[in-house]
Design a protein around this nucleic acid. Structure first.
Lengths: 345, 345
DNA sequence: ACTCGTTATGCATCCGGATGCATACCATAT
DNA sequence: ATATGGTATGCATCCGGATGCATAACGAGT
């Protein structure tokens, strides 16, 4: 019964006597009607008399019939599956997003196919494989996708939404937080509290989040007649990189550090405190971006900008499930969460 | 072209002129051979002459033909999809597990269908829906599933593996860490370091992890002539619950607290330190279980038992992909990670 | 009773591959 | 040349539903 059949390189068994499900024909036979009538009965818009629909539903119930999604998908070319492409599941922001998105999709009747991509890796070449599954839509978070691929999908009437990323090409819908404005608020906050030696610890180059946050921060500084005392690069949005960068940031003797996101900030705080004995915020103020759960933990009590995940997820799922929603870029406002890592004026 | 067709309550479009893929018949026609030959060409064990297989592969390449997974799945009743049922994605331990599992499944040629379940909720009634997708196997983490359902799946030759959970019924394969032994090591550690007023902060009742850790801890205490100075219950493995429980634990004036997992411990530490000014470990020692990334962060530097996620994931995926692996319970050893939250003797 | 306009049903086919069975092919053995 | 065994191919069907088209049934209007 075994075979060496391979699907994409994996062994499978041929139909090993798996229990055949009850089919629409079974129901039809039991009632002496046609299979197509049963099929229509399950289509809210299908033409079936009230009485027969009721009979069919009742029979289906008793026989334990449920329409087979795979078979249906074969002819409709729809699967009810949304793929979530996600990189960097080590960042709580994204796992939180994943959790909420899965919940929202579930509520909307969709299933989530998880497509994990190694941090920073390109996924373009792996996406065609997803088409095989008749995946209805694509949510891309913390990963890059070319607009060529995006358009290919959209032409095929499958929505693609970038989450917390955006690309220059306007035709690719995306949902992002207003990073620029958020960063400007942080700049204002730090300046208002009397800081003058500001350091920016950047996220990975090439991420739109970092670009926008950096631009917003620096522009606002300039508008207020200030400038950056230093800038540190990192290769990933991770605790370890924040930890590493903090030491470097310290070399320019800053009185405030803006880490491009919370995870970096947490790593930075720990480094400053436990390796250098820096008091936060009396010696140095620290701010981050995202407002992940740990930012609110007493050990950190980090002042940051909250990205409204719930709202962002809501919009994302709306873009995907509501075919009347125009496929445009959506930018939602962030919110300053003032905690204890910035000194008072 | 629109319709009110619903799949599980969601609107879909009927085949809206989606680009038809290149099919095996297209390839067959182009080469003047039969469709079945093309199909067999893609079956490593299929009978096709070397030359024809080569021709077919070449033609497939040029025409851009790729076997359609959905159609294949319809007849084989296999999909190459593994569902990961997961509750409590707020616990880094599980997101880490999810990340690694998705990676391992991907490497084995499987796709991961994410099935998120609200914490503590029963999923039995939602699982039949997954069968619709011809899901090949089920990994259940941090959620409960009845052995009746599990057996139903197994009878249908679809493996089910419980991750970090176990049920009394031996017939349900599970992969767990040796919670009992780990807890005993912690008991030994605390006693050896001279503690005598020990408190156990329990995880939710009914979780096998909590049951085993508690049993191991208490038994070892008894073996060494000690007993628990106190015990605190919680309703979930969460930071907030640890935070809450810490205050309660404090009332019995402990000199050491064992939190049933790391997340609880982190919440507890923050409460003890920042609300009560407790010095850890000089006033009170704290230990946890799991070794999530945050446990290693300098701010906590938590002494704990590492659950070897990578090994657990490896075994889990092996149980699922290797049909020769006996479907038994697997228990992997944990490892004491001694950091700074336990005072020296 | 006789049309006409709806609404219900059924038939046949399609979606794209997989596979049992029969046949055709090929080479070696006799 | 003929029998023999293994390999290649093709045919027909199946997996389970969806759907265009044709027909039947029904209710109303005159």
């Amino acid at each position: 019964m075994r075979s060496k059949w391979k699907i994409w390189g994996l062994k499978v068994l041929r139909d090993g006597g798996r229990k055949r499900d009850v089919t629409s024909r079974d129901v039809a036979r039991a009632l002496g009607v046609s299979q197509s009538m049963v099929s229509r009965a399950f289509d809210p818009a299908g033409r079936v008399s009230k009485e027969n629909r009721a009979r069919i539903m009742r029979a289906a119930e008793t026989l334990g019939y449920v329409p087979n999604v795979i078979a249906r998908s074969l002819s409709t070319r729809r699967s009810g599956i949304v793929a979530i492409v996600i990189g960097g599941m080590d960042n709580p922001f994204y796992t939180d997003m994943l959790d909420q998105t899965a919940a929202a999709l579930d509520a909307a009747g969709y299933k989530s196919l998880l497509f994990r991509v190694p941090a920073g890796q390109d996924v373009d070449d792996q996406l065609p494989a997803l088409r095989q599954y008749n995946v209805d839509a694509l949510i891309v978070a913390s990963a890059s996708i070319s607009s060529r691929i995006a358009e290919e999908w959209q032409r095929d009437d499958r929505r693609v939404v970038l989450f917390n990323r955006s690309v220059p090409d306007q035709s690719v819908p995306s949902v992002t937080c207003d990073n620029e404005t958020g960063a400007r608020e942080l700049a204002d906050l730090l300046i208002d509290r009397g800081h003058s030696r500001l350091v920016f610890v950047a996220g990975p180059q090439g991420t739109s989040t970092n670009r926008e946050r950096e631009a917003g921060f620096i522009r606002r500084l300039m508008e207020r007649g200030c400038s950056l005392a230093g800038r540190v690069d990192t290769t990933s949005y991770s605790f370890a990189e924040g930890y590493r960068a903090a030491a470097e940031a310290l070399s320019v003797k800053p009185d405030a550090v803006f880490f491009a996101n919370d995870v970096l900030a947490l790593g930075g705080i720990d480094r400053l405190r436990y390796d250098f004995g820096v008091k936060i915020p009396s010696d140095i103020s620290v701010v981050g971006f995202d407002d992940i759960p740990m930012a609110g933990w007493p050990a950190y009590n980090l002042t940051t900008i909250r990205q409204p995940i719930d709202e962002m997820v809501r919009v994302t799922v709306e873009l995907i499930t509501d075919h009347d929603a125009p496929p445009t870029r959506r930018i939602v406002p962030g919110q300053l969460v003032s905690r204890g890592t910035v000194r008072l004026a």
